[in-house]
């Protein structure tokens, strides 16, 4: 794909102090379950009270992050709004399904039904900033954010938009946490983020969050140089793809100043990271990020937010993000200065 995709501004709500602008990585202490919950800001500064009362948590998170991102980018109305979400508004979906059962498919509240649709956040953002342009939501599990990013890059590349608001949001509900626990997605014993890489146990720590970016064709200090996705690849395929991806951008592994990796301490899948770093990045500084935000479908959006933060504070020419989601969806994102 032609062109550079400059990041004009970012915003994130996560388990970290990412929204306040006073971010320093913190290892949280979990009280009773392997779940890193987001630190929620005061939404009243961003959303009118009459709208706020009706919104579920993830809608408030998504809308507020999007508005803050636009503010940080100096963009009032974007040319397009594109998001990715693995699960959308889980809370509303569960509430709606419970009510169907409880009230035998009668007397159902309209609000959780309306809000349970995946594109609710996009609609709310569009209404809030009065944007009637391109509006799309991607729901592809561990590739949801990546597809939103790809769509944004394509719009910019084709000259169909000058700037695009692209982002992702996902929440974790008690019920979904329990369901994923049953299939072994999360570590069985309570494990603190500081222990997750040394515990040597299967499963990750669950997480949630929301991150937004304004991408544009107008130069800024950081740009996305490339994006590559792989579905259920073998280890060899991951390596071949990385080599081709870097070659395509005229780079060697040694040109990468920082590797941001999606290591989660999950013994079922961390071998992808071990093998990749051992073969290509033995001397490259590596920053894992899931001890900060946990594992969720769109965790790569937090990785991108973190990468931009690091690039704005450090002299890094090229940063590579490598993330995989339970062995199925693998992503490389290359950032340049």
């Amino acid at each position: 794909m032609k062109g550079r995709f400059y990041i004009q501004g970012t915003a994130a709500i996560s388990p970290q102090e990412s929204f306040s602008g006073e971010f320093t990585p913190q290892l949280l202490t979990l009280a009773d379950k392997n779940l890193l919950r987001v630190k929620e800001p005061d939404y009243r500064a961003f959303i009118a009270p009459n709208s706020l009362r009706r919104m579920s948590r993830v809608l408030k998170m998504g809308l507020t992050t999007a508005i803050r991102c636009l503010q940080n980018s100096g963009v009032a109305v974007p040319d397009a709004i594109i998001t990715g979400t693995g699960k959308g508004s889980l809370h509303d979906t569960e509430r709606f399904l419970h009510d169907i059962r409880r009230y035998s498919e009668t007397a159902l509240n309209p609000t959780p039904f309306i809000q349970s649709t995946y594109n609710s956040v996009n609609g709310l953002v569009a209404l809030q900033v009065q944007c009637t342009e391109y509006n799309n939501t991607f729901v592809h599990r561990g590739f949801s954010f990546e597809h939103a990013l790809l769509d944004a890059m394509m719009l910019l590349s084709e000259g169909r938009a000058g700037n695009v608001l692209a982002g992702a949001f996902d929440e974790m509900s008690d019920e979904y946490f329990y369901i994923r626990s049953r299939i072994g997605s999360w570590k069985e014993q309570l494990t603190q983020p500081e222990e997750m890489f040394t515990a040597g146990t299967p499963g990750a720590l669950s997480g949630e969050g929301s991150a937004f970016f304004v991408l544009s064709s107008t130069p800024s200090d950081v740009h996305i140089a490339g994006l590559k996705m792989l579905y259920k690849p073998s280890q060899e395929r991951v390596h071949e793809t990385l080599e081709a991806f870097l070659r395509q951008h005229g780079l060697q592994p040694s040109d990468i100043g920082l590797l941001i990796s999606g290591r989660s301490g999950d013994t079922n899948f961390d071998h992808y990271y071990h093998a990749l770093t051992a073969q290509y990045f033995p001397q490259t500084p590596e920053v894992p990020f899931k001890q900060l935000c946990g594992e969720y479908d769109t965790a790569a959006s937090f990785a991108l937010w973190l990468a931009v933060e690091r690039m704005r504070k450090e002299e890094l020419r090229h940063v590579l993000i490598y993330n995989q989601f339970f062995g199925e969806q693998h992503t490389f994102i290359l950032l340049g200065r």
Binding site: N50, R54, Y103, T106, A107, L108, N109, P110, T111, I114
Partner: peptide
């Protein structure tokens, strides 16, 4: 200051 969605919610309230 309620709106049309609230009116649907109130109908549900009466029914439930």
């Amino acid at each position: 200051g309620l709106d049309s969605i609230d009116s649907l919610e109130l109908m549900v309230l009466l029914e439930r």
